[in-house]
Write a protein that binds this DNA or RNA. Sequence first.
DNA 1: CATGAATGAGCCTTCATTCAT
DNA 2: AATGAATGAAGGCTCATTCAT
Lengths: 203, 203, 203, 203
Amino acid sequence: MTTAPLRKDAARNWERIVAVARDLVDEGTPLQLNDVARRAHLGVGTVYRHFPTADALLETVAAPCLEALAAHGEQALADDNPKRALAGFLTHTIEAQVTDASLSAVTSAPTDALPRTTELKLTLRSVGGQLLERACAAGVVRADLTSDDLVPLMCGIAYAANVHAVPATRVETARRYLGMLLEGLCIQNSGGDPAPTGDGSTG
Amino acid sequence: MTTAPLRKDAARNWERIVAVARDLVDEGTPLQLNDVARRAHLGVGTVYRHFPTADALLETVAAPCLEALAAHGEQALADDNPKRALAGFLTHTIEAQVTDASLSAVTSAPTDALPRTTELKLTLRSVGGQLLERACAAGVVRADLTSDDLVPLMCGIAYAANVHAVPATRVETARRYLGMLLEGLCIQNSGGDPAPTGDGSTG
Amino acid sequence: MTTAPLRKDAARNWERIVAVARDLVDEGTPLQLNDVARRAHLGVGTVYRHFPTADALLETVAAPCLEALAAHGEQALADDNPKRALAGFLTHTIEAQVTDASLSAVTSAPTDALPRTTELKLTLRSVGGQLLERACAAGVVRADLTSDDLVPLMCGIAYAANVHAVPATRVETARRYLGMLLEGLCIQNSGGDPAPTGDGSTG
Amino acid sequence: MTTAPLRKDAARNWERIVAVARDLVDEGTPLQLNDVARRAHLGVGTVYRHFPTADALLETVAAPCLEALAAHGEQALADDNPKRALAGFLTHTIEAQVTDASLSAVTSAPTDALPRTTELKLTLRSVGGQLLERACAAGVVRADLTSDDLVPLMCGIAYAANVHAVPATRVETARRYLGMLLEGLCIQNSGGDPAPTGDGSTG
DNA sequence: CATGAATGAGCCTTCATTCAT
DNA sequence: AATGAATGAAGGCTCATTCAT
């Protein structure tokens, strides 16, 4: 729509570049445009033509996942159980973030290289915000939680799962941590005493 | 202890290096040994002699904070309110991590450059484990939480507070997020339906 | 003449390219064929077809000015005051060179990309030579000045005006410098001692 | 004075770098730091350590010549013949500029990389200004010539001599052109009509 | 003819680490 | 021990030119 369709060969190269980048992301290698070019058997210039910066490429790699998340979110809006809808959306989000390194990088970044990314992030935030609002309205979620908190919290959970957890168990760990966040570490009716004290004093 | 006490001038250099490194960490500058040397008005070689790698220096910078945390944890063990003890310890930990960039780096790192760091991290884990155990025993904390989860969760909370939150509000944000984790995002008696579904399906 | 007339669309492209190049020259941007193509909304290949090198394009841009200068020179030949004729011609030349960056580049260049340019430069040289000859014959110009000196001297004056003089005052400065060159920096009857000594000794 | 004396090996490298740069300048090769490093059989880093930019190196190469010119200028101030003093100074300047490509580059540059260069250029300007003032006072130089004009005019003459003149004759040509500038192209008492007309009209 | 994607040499710069002084 | 100069691999990016479409 927005851009003219690429020529066939250019399109093939574009795909190659993104595919290589995807592989690099998956194997945890930092994205370097020269590196991508070498692996894709293309000139550096070609890569730079398609992606002016490494971030632009990373965001392109992440885009489909962001879109899938957004799509899922839209579906979740149709769920008439607000709690389940929100929890499902967050679960999906977390699983994606833990599975795909491009996502965590992109969602954590304060600025975007591509307008499309900004757009997707806004959509995601908006969807999350709506799901949250409904859950709030239904009284199933604490009232002091805002849509601004959702992304950081998800990033945090994903980060937690990536710290010390071996790849094999990451998704599982992430789900556990999300469960803990949703239900709380503490048993709720366990007494009237404070959670965090603010000044950290224990005695 | 393990090493012979440094000569007076060497000791002074050591202090200088660590002080400079502390400053760099605080201003968010990545630790580069050349940089440290220049600012400390010392030769690079001197810095390398004291700290073979940047990580060793970083861990040295972080050590006092880790010790302070451990000390606090020991005190907390004396608290007869297990929930308060644990919450206070976690609050302390989070505040430290958010405030001090060296801490988050060191606690998140899978391996350590210095044995002392490993030792401290173990102590911390052990203290946390004990506090957790007591809280568990008192039934104030969910049973599926293990001492292995504490560090990742704290790192996650700290990370969450660092994403998108401006420095000025970070500590406050981190406290909020810790509160949410402890109490749960969801209102507890709000229905029988599941939190995360595991397969993420919403309908 | 030498080449078949261009097809209408090709001619339009040619014009577009030259116009864009003119703009780039005027804004002081170095001529890059890719750049020209982009601004002209044409493919690079098209630009390369019309102008095999950046110099060829530059010379094409400069050609009309060179022609105008030549035309002026021809007119000056009709002036019956040899001194005025020469001075006028030089003034014109200088003004053009200072005003139009393409000119200084082309006139200073030792070799030409286009035969047309060589032709024009020869014409100009010839006209200058004739004007000079007349002035010499009339005894109003020093005898050791040859037609070979005219172009370098004009380039030099233009260069002088471009060094350190802000754009706004360049033409004025160039005129002043030309005046100085014509009349001499030194007061003529001011004594019998030498101008440049050749070995630079001051005594 | 200002900087600590270099270690012997560093000093040797410094010399090597400057010598190589001098050669490159003399053979008309553009100064590239990597290139310098290769020719000097040194690591790039070494060159960058000594000279942060190519301009800094160029100015270092030019410095001795600038100093020599300044020294000559000081001597010229002692000459009791103001015209000869000025002419000698200008001749020297021109010869140096034509002979040494580093000089023309440095004197024409609007900004300097090294403070030392700025200093030298100021000295040179000041000396020129004084010589000019004396010549003016003695009535041997046109009154509308200011010290601001000296540098541009000398750069212009040097440029003129470099245009089209083959290296072998450059110095000679430059001297001739300087002579012409000093004495004027026109025979002075050759009539009352104007030199440049300002509008360039020839009648 | 027009197009513009592809090329890749070439330049710039940084920085972790070594080692002669 | 202390010093800090030297190293050079590594990464970044541009741009003139070619050639498949």
